[in-house]
Computed example of a mutant assay.
Amino acid sequence: MMHFKFSPKILQRLGEELIQNPDQGIIELVKNSYDADATECTVELIKTSAIGGSIIISDNGVGMDKDAISEGWLVYNVNELVSIIRANTQGAVCDHRLSNSGFANFYRAELVANLYDFKFPSLLITQYTEMDTSFSIRKWRHKIPVLLSREEADASSIAKGIEDCTLELSGKIPSTRKPRRTIVRITNINVAKKL
């Protein structure tokens, strides 16, 4: 048995935005049967005039197996996605704002930071570099060796970025990435006395 977890945005897109009324929903499901090369499709309406009724649509088409469902429809948390990436790839290129599409419930900056903890080469691409760096990326920026804007993200800059990331993960941190300590000197502190 498979348990499903969907992002609320996916449910909204599949529900309100895609299907405007119940009749259209049934038509879409019958169309899915046709898309799956079904030669037969049966629609059963069971107590649909009352709350808790059921609609069962069955067909003899080629359906999706468990892997197709889990790879295409389930929402992963960061740790699950880190495990999948580490097991199946040699590096990761992440788009920071994919979470806005509704297919993930976290920013990719968090994913890159988690991959960094495993010394796994990855880089982050964002469309809004200045704004994201100051706000949504800031929390994880120290674990993001390479941040590219969409304009500068091409094959050569991505390859160089993965190379730079690999160097940093091996301990060769460039001077541009080394944190600088700041000395703050506080003088003339006035303490107000309460009467």
Rank of each mutant, 00 (worst) to 15 (best):
M1N: 14
H3Q: 12
H3T: 11
F4W: 04
K5G: 03
F6P: 00
R13M: 13
L14R: 07
G15T: 06
E16I: 00
Q20H: 15
N21E: 15
P22L: 02
D23E: 14
D23Q: 11
I26W: 02
I27M: 13
E28F: 11
S33P: 02
A36T: 04
D37N: 13
D37R: 12
D37K: 11
C41D: 03
I46D: 09
S49K: 01
G52W: 02
I55T: 09
I56G: 10
N60T: 03
G61R: 01
V62D: 13
G63Y: 02
M64I: 10
V75N: 04
Y76H: 08
N77D: 09
V78E: 02
V78Y: 03
V78D: 01
N79W: 08
N79Y: 05
V82I: 02
S83P: 08
I84W: 03
A87T: 07
A87P: 06
T89Y: 12
G91D: 05
A92T: 01
D95L: 08
G102L: 04
N105D: 12
R108G: 13
L111C: 00
V112H: 05
F120P: 01
P121F: 06
L124S: 03
I125Q: 01
Q127H: 14
Q127G: 09
Y128V: 00
E130I: 05
T133P: 11
S134G: 14
H142C: 09
K143N: 15
V146T: 04
L147A: 03
S149H: 00
A155S: 13
S156W: 15
S157G: 06
S157F: 09
A159E: 09
G161P: 05
C165A: 12
L167N: 05
S170F: 10
P174G: 03
R181P: 12
I183S: 11
T187F: 09
N188E: 07
I189Q: 10
V191D: 15
L195D: 11
